[in-house]
Amino acid sequence: MADTKNRVALVTGGSGGIGRAVCERLAREGYAVAVHYAGNRARAQETADAVAALGAKSMLVVGDIADETQMTTAFDAVESEFGGIDVVVNTAGIMLLSPIATLDLDDLDRMHRTNIRGAFVVSQQAARRLRSGGALINFTTSVTRLQFPTYGAYVASKAAVESMTMILARELRGRDITVNAVAPGPTATPLFLDGKDQAAIDNLAKAAPLERLGTPDDIAETVAFLAGPARWLNGQVLFANGGIA
Rank of each mutant, 00 (worst) to 15 (best):
Asp3Pro: 02
Asp3Met: 02
Asn6Gln: 14
Leu10Met: 14
Leu10Phe: 02
Gly14Asp: 10
Gly16Asn: 02
Arg20Lys: 15
Ala32Cys: 01
Tyr37Ser: 01
Ala38Gly: 14
Ala44Thr: 10
Ala53Pro: 01
Ala56Leu: 02
Lys57Trp: 00
Met59Glu: 00
Gly63Met: 13
Asp64Met: 10
Asp67Met: 11
Asp67Leu: 08
Gln70Val: 07
Thr72Met: 06
Ala74Ser: 15
Asp76Ala: 15
Val78Gln: 08
Phe82Ser: 12
Phe82Val: 13
Val87Cys: 08
Val89Ala: 14
Ala92Ser: 14
Ala101Tyr: 04
Ala101His: 06
Asp104Phe: 09
Leu108Asn: 07
Arg113Ser: 13
Ile116Lys: 08
Ala119Asp: 07
Val121Trp: 03
Ser123Gln: 02
Gln125Trp: 11
Arg129Lys: 14
Leu130Cys: 09
Leu130Ser: 10
Leu136Asp: 01
Ile137Phe: 12
Thr141Ala: 12
Thr144Gln: 09
Arg145Val: 09
Thr150Lys: 08
Ala153Gly: 10
Ala153Val: 06
Tyr154Thr: 01
Ala156Cys: 07
Ser157Gly: 04
Ala160Phe: 10
Ala160Asp: 12
Arg170Ile: 05
Glu171Thr: 05
Arg173Trp: 11
Ile177Cys: 09
Asn180Ile: 05
Pro186Arg: 06
Pro190Tyr: 01
Leu193Gln: 05
Asp197Met: 00
Asp197Ser: 02
Ala199Ile: 13
Ala200Lys: 00
Ile201Asn: 13
Lys206Ile: 01
Lys206Glu: 10
Lys206Gln: 14
Gly214Asn: 00
Asp217Gly: 01
Ile219Tyr: 07
Ile219Glu: 05
Thr222Gln: 01
Leu226Lys: 04
Asn234Lys: 06
Gly242His: 07
Gly242Trp: 10
Ala245Arg: 06
